[in-house]
C-alpha cells in the first residue's frame, strides 16, 4: 500500500502497461493438456507390455493382443489424471495405420476412464488422434492429442525399414500436430534414450509455425519450454531422469515424457454459429524413453573378462600338456632273464 501510495500517476500507468505486456508476451500455460498415455492406471492388472516398444496391451482371444492407450489430463506424466471424454459434441477420434489408411479403433469409456484399443497388424507407426474444437469467448480452441505407436516384430524381417519408420501427418483431417524428426539411422528398434537430441516440428494444417511454444515434461516432472524456429522446429535434449541403486539396474525401464505445444493465431471465423477472432491451437505427443544404453555397457570389463579367460584357458592347456608329457626313461632289458625264460621254455 505504501508503495502504491508513493507511486505517482504516470508511473502507475506505466507499471500497469508493463504488467499487461508481461502477461501478454508470456506463453500461454495450458492448464489442462489432454494426451494419450501408454502408462496403465495402477488398478489395471491385466495390462502387459507388448512388442519392441513395450506398448501396453490387453490379451484377447487366441492370445492375440490389442494395443491400449489411455486419455489423461495434466502436465505431469507421473500424476496426470486418467479422465473420460466429456459427453459433449466436438470430440473426434482418428486412427491411422502405417499405410496411412484410416482404421477402426475402439474408443471406450469405462469406470470414468477413456481409452482406445486396436489390433496392430502392419509394420510401422500407427497414429491416433483425439481432436476437439470449441469456441470460448472470442477464441476457437483447437486441441489435438496425438499418439505414435510403433508396431514391429523381427519375425516380419527388416526390409524397407527407411520407408516404414517415416512420420505421417494428416493435415486434411488433423489441424495441428507435432512431428518427431526421424534420426538418420533410425530403424524399427529405435527408442529415444536420455542424452538424445530430438527435433520436433510444430505444424498447423500441415504447415510449420514459427514462435509456437513447445514444452517437454519428463516423468519426474523436469520441464523445458522452447519456441519453434522459422521452420517450426525445436530441439530438445533428453535428460537422464532415472538413477537407481546398483541392485536395481535396469536400462529397459521406460520413462514417459509429455510434449505439448500451443500457439494463438489471430484468425476470424464462425464455428457452429459462434464467431471468433483468435484460434488457440494446442497439441500433445507422448512417448517413452530409456536411460542411455551406453551408460550400462562396459568395454573395459569385457576386456578384463576376455584377458582373464584367455590367461586361464592358456594356462590350463599348458599345465595339462605338461602333466601328460612323458619323462624319458631308459629301459634296459635284462637279457639274462630272457635267456632264462627261453631256457625254461625249452626245458
Amino acid at each position: 500500500m505504501i508503495i502504491i501510495k508513493n507511486i505517482k500517476k504516470p508511473e502507475y500507468t506505466f507499471i500497469s502497461i508493463l504488467l499487461v505486456c508481461f502477461f501478454l508476451i508470456q506463453p500461454v500455460v495450458a492448464q489442462e493438456i489432454s494426451w494419450f498415455s501408454n502408462m496403465p492406471p495402477k488398478e489395471e492388472k491385466k495390462i502387459v507390455e507388448n512388442g519392441m516398444h513395450r506398448l501396453s496391451s490387453i490379451k484377447g482371444k487366441r492370445g492375440q493382443s490389442s494395443i491400449i492407450q489411455w486419455l489423461r489430463k495434466g502436465t505431469n506424466p507421473e500424476n496426470a489424471a486418467y479422465v473420460q471424454i466429456p459427453d459433449s459434441l466436438g470430440f473426434n477420434f482418428w486412427l491411422f495405420s502405417p499405410s496411412k489408411k484410416q482404421i477402426e479403433g475402439k474408443l471406450i469409456t469405462k469406470g470414468g476412464k477413456s481409452f482406445f484399443t486396436y489390433a496392430s497388424k502392419e509394420e510401422g507407426y500407427y497414429n491416433a488422434y483425439l481432436t476437439h474444437k470449441e469456441v470460448l469467448g472470442d477464441t476457437l480452441n483447437v486441441t489435438v492429442a496425438k499418439s505414435e505407436m510403433l508396431n514391429h516384430s523381427c519375425r516380419n524381417g527388416h526390409k524397407l525399414v527407411r520407408g516404414i519408420v517415416g512420420p505421417h501427418i494428416y493435415p486434411e483431417i488433423i489441424p495441428v500436430e507435432i512431428k518427431r524428426k526421424r534420426i538418420f539411422a533410425e530403424d524399427l528398434h529405435y527408442f529415444t534414450t536420455s542424452s538424445d537430441k530430438v527435433e520436433y516440428q510444430f505444424l498447423v494444417n500441415g504447415e510449420p509455425v514459427e514462435g509456437a511454444s513447445l514444452t517437454l515434461v519428463t516423468q519426474k516432472n523436469w520441464n523445458k519450454t522452447q519456441k519453434t524456429n522459422k521452420e517450426g522446429k525445436s530441439t530438445f535434449q533428453f535428460i537422464q531422469d532415472y538413477f537407481s541403486s546398483w541392485q536395481e539396474l535396469n536400462n529397459r525401464e521406460i520413462y514417459y515424457y509429455l510434449l505439448y505445444g500451443e500457439i494463438i493465431v489471430p484468425e476470424q471465423g464462425i464455428y457452429k454459429g459462434s464467431a471468433y477472432s483468435y484460434v488457440h491451437y494446442t497439441t500433445s505427443l507422448s512417448d517413452g524413453y530409456r536411460p542411455a544404453k551406453t551408460m550400462y555397457m562396459s568395454m573395459f570389463w569385457a576386456f578384463v573378462v576376455f584377458i582373464l579367460a584367455t590367461v586361464i584357458i592358456v594356462t590350463g592347456i599348458f599345465i595339462y600338456r605338461l602333466r601328460r608329457q612323458k619323462i624319458y626313461k631308459e629301459i634296459k632289458l635284462d637279457e639274462s632273464n630272457v635267456t632264462n625264460f627261453d631256457t625254461k621254455r625249452n626245458d
Binding site: L249, Y296, M297, W301, F303, V305
Partner: peptide, 10 residues
C-alpha cells in the same frame, strides 16, 4: 566393436 561389452542392464 560395439558388441564387445558387458551389459550391466540387468
Amino acid at each position: 566393436t560395439s558388441q564387445l561389452f558387458i551389459d550391466f542392464t540387468t
